[in-house]
């Protein structure tokens, strides 16, 4: 589904990603962990197509297509969804109105008929209910005045409505209390399927208690320093990132 080869990314003068290789197959959940500044969020933004970053080397293929050749909106319509760490507040656009526009733009792209207002409302209500959220949020302006938890839940709601092939969750757990964390994780788990893949970017192992990953990768200084299964995340939780730093500096000296 997603094949990243030797990916180098810079922001201005600064090289942030220094050669990432990653293959994600349908149905897999990959966790990306790592200390602050290791490039986790950059990877998420590069997948979404943010223009502040420049890919200087390497390639990303998504469903057999060159992802780097696609515009931000094309990527979304092709099935990539990014749940943001800091979702933007957009006053004056209601969540319902916004969801209707995006669902219909994706349906139009697929050659499907647009949903009318009633069908759309029915779909949104169903998803809101499944996620254990409050329906009142549909009428409110997108993210405006939402608490941290509400914003993240709203990201998951959008994901549930858009049904992407690949969802990238960028530190979705940050700023969540334990109840909100559980709701968000349950939302993700109900969407897990044999066709849908996830990249879960997180700083803490906590989230991975709820969303159990198939693979864990540790990003350090712009490279994947170590890959493993969920036990790697537990080890990081217990021992921090220091052992990894030692291991890498030893190997780079060698």
């Amino acid at each position: 589904m997603l094949v990243i080869k030797d990916l180098h990314v810079s922001a201005g003068e600064l090289e942030i990603l220094k050669g990432i290789d990653l293959v994600i197959n349908p149905g897999e959940v990959h966790a990306i962990m790592g200390p602050n500044g290791s490039g986790k969020s950059t990877l998420a933004h590069v997948l979404a197509g943010k223009e502040d970053y420049e890919v200087t080397r390497g390639s990303i293929e998504f469903m057999g297509e060159d992802l780097l050749d696609m515009e931000i909106d094309e990527r979304a319509r092709a099935g990539i969804f990014q749940a943001f760490q800091y979702p933007v507040e957009i006053p004056g656009v209601s969540t319902a109105q916004f969801l209707k526009s995006v669902v219909n733009s994706i349906r139009t792209e697929k050659g499907e008929e647009e949903l009318n207002a009633m069908e759309m409302l029915k779909l949104m209500r169903k998803k809101v209910k499944e996620l254990g959220m409050n329906e009142a949020l549909l009428k409110r302006s997108l993210n405006e005045g939402f608490s941290g938890g509400e914003k993240k839940k709203n990201e998951i709601l959008q994901m549930a409505v858009l049904e992407p092939k690949l969802a990238v969750l960028d530190e979705t757990d940050s700023g969540l209390d334990i109840d909100a964390l559980r709701i968000v994780a349950e939302g993700v788990n109900t969407l897990r399927s044999a066709e849908r893949s996830f990249i879960v970017v997180t700083h803490y192992q906590r989230l991975l208690d709820y969303i159990v990953p198939d693979f864990v990768h540790v990003l350090y200084q712009g490279k994947i320093a170590k890959s493993g299964d969920k036990n790697l995340a537990l080890k990081l939780e217990d021992e921090g990132y220091d052992w990894l730093k030692d291991e890498i500096s030893v190997s780079s000296i060698a």
Partner: peptide, 27 residues
């Protein structure tokens, strides 16, 4: 930032721009 956010949801730049403009003026 808002434009980027809307585009990551699949709206074309033109559509996203229109949405933000109408959100601005609807007040």
């Amino acid at each position: 930032q808002a434009l980027y956010y809307l585009m990551t949801r699949g709206l074309e730049r033109k559509q996203a721009t229109k949405m933000l403009q109408s959100a601005f003026i609807q007040e």
